[in-house]
């Protein structure tokens, strides 16, 4: 090879992409080969994978460390319930409505909390989530502080039988994770995405190169909020019941998600996916230990942050920087030793 070529794909990444496509196809067929409990578990895994991927985009790439994404998860659940039960919308319309509403609400919020820097931004996002929780607790039409359940008429509107409904909820979750991971992947490959990585690596240098740091971060925040809201809607479609405490739970929608991303490897596409799988593997084996499990997770996350800040994927990836998702541009033809 004498000519220099710039490309992203490597043999490994091409193989990984083919494998991934196969896995998606096999998983799409899960309603025919998996039991009901398994199906629910898979669905939950996909929903967490989406949340983790979105949080990773926010914190790992845009440097916006939020501990308040439960604001959008809960918002999604409540908007979905309100749209179907109060405004009489079809569930199929309610999903995009939730997504658009989440993004729209996040824009003025971004204006406000972007005034806070670094760690104070994190707590600011938490305040916003608390405002959401306390506000929805005041809405008596949705059960106030004790919450409400989705009416059977709406549930039946989705699909007639229970199997059909569960399969549908599962496909939504699978579809969501494909869309979210795909969107993040293509976003990071775009001009905006390269700008984002530049900002993460050096904000000062990036702004001197003419990258509008504020606008790029704002865009990421709003898009992430919209997709997180959609995820929230799907989560509470699976749960069929909503209450302010469950909808805006810091533990469920932020602590777990942060642990997943930290354990898997922050700032990589692979990290949140691997982290989710590890998280659920641990949960399925240690679930009986309840609070001890959470304490252990906390210790593991701290240990990883101190010892290998790049997480499990960072360990696998090593110094050679292997990637399953072809993101980095590689110059070929200089020397073929590396790849």
């Amino acid at each position: 090879m004498d000519t220099l070529k710039v490309s992203r794909a490597t043999r490994l990444s091409t193989m990984a992409m083919v494998m991934l496509a196969l896995i998606v196809v096999v998983m799409a067929a899960a309603p025919w080969w998996a039991g009901r409990a398994d199906l629910r578990l898979f669905g939950e895994i996909f929903l967490y994978m989406s949340l983790a991927t979105l949080w990773n985009l926010l914190a790992g790439y845009a440097g916006l460390v939020s501990v308040g994404q439960q604001a959008y998860v809960g918002l999604g659940g409540y908007v979905f319930f309100a749209a179907t039960m109060l405004w009489g919308m079809s569930p199929f319309i309610a999903f995009p409505v939730a997504m658009v509403l989440g993004a729209a609400i996040s824009a003025p919020i971004a204006f406000l909390i972007f005034r806070l820097r670094g760690a104070y931004f994190a707590i600011g996002t938490w305040v916003v989530a608390e405002v959401f929780r306390l506000s929805f607790a005041q809405v008596s039409a949705l059960g106030g502080g004790s919450g409400t359940s989705l009416t059977t008429a709406i549930v039946k509107d989705l699909a007639s039988g229970r199997d059909g409904r569960e399969a549908l909820a599962y496909w939504f979750a699978l579809g969501l994770v494909v869309v979210v991971v795909g969107a993040v992947f293509f976003f990071l490959r775009s001009r905006q995405g390269v700008a984002l990585t530049a900002i993460r690596d050096n904000e000062l240098a990036a702004s001197s190169l003419g990258i509008d740091v504020w606008r790029t971060k704002f865009l990421v925040y709003v898009v992430t909020a919209g997709l997180t809201t959609l995820t929230g809607a799907l989560i509470f479609l699976q749960k069929l019941r909503i209450s302010p405490d469950a909808a805006f739970s810091t533990n469920d929608w932020t602590a777990f998600v942060i642990f997943i991303v930290v354990i898997g490897g922050i700032g990589t596409i692979e990290g949140p996916i691997i982290g989710t799988l590890v998280f659920f593997a641990l949960r399925e084996t240690l679930a009986d230990f309840g609070t001890i499990y959470l304490i252990a997770l906390g210790f593991v996350a701290i240990l990883i942050m101190l010892k290998t800040p790049n997480g499990l994927w960072g360990l696998v990836r090593g110094r050679r920087g292997i990637e399953l998702f072809p993101l980095s541009q590689r110059v070929r033809g200089l020397s073929e030793k590396g790849t």
Binding site: A59, G63, V65, V67, G118, A119, A122, N251, A255, I258, F259, V262, I266, T291, I292, L294, I295, L297, G298, F299, A301, I302, M305, L306, P309
Partner: peptide, 18 residues
């Protein structure tokens, strides 16, 4: 800023559950 933030977050979860 990420490491101190995430480590204190982990401490928070540990203290709460302990």
């Amino acid at each position: 800023i990420l490491p101190p933030l995430l480590v204190t977050f982990g401490l928070s979860v540990i203290i709460q559950n302990a």
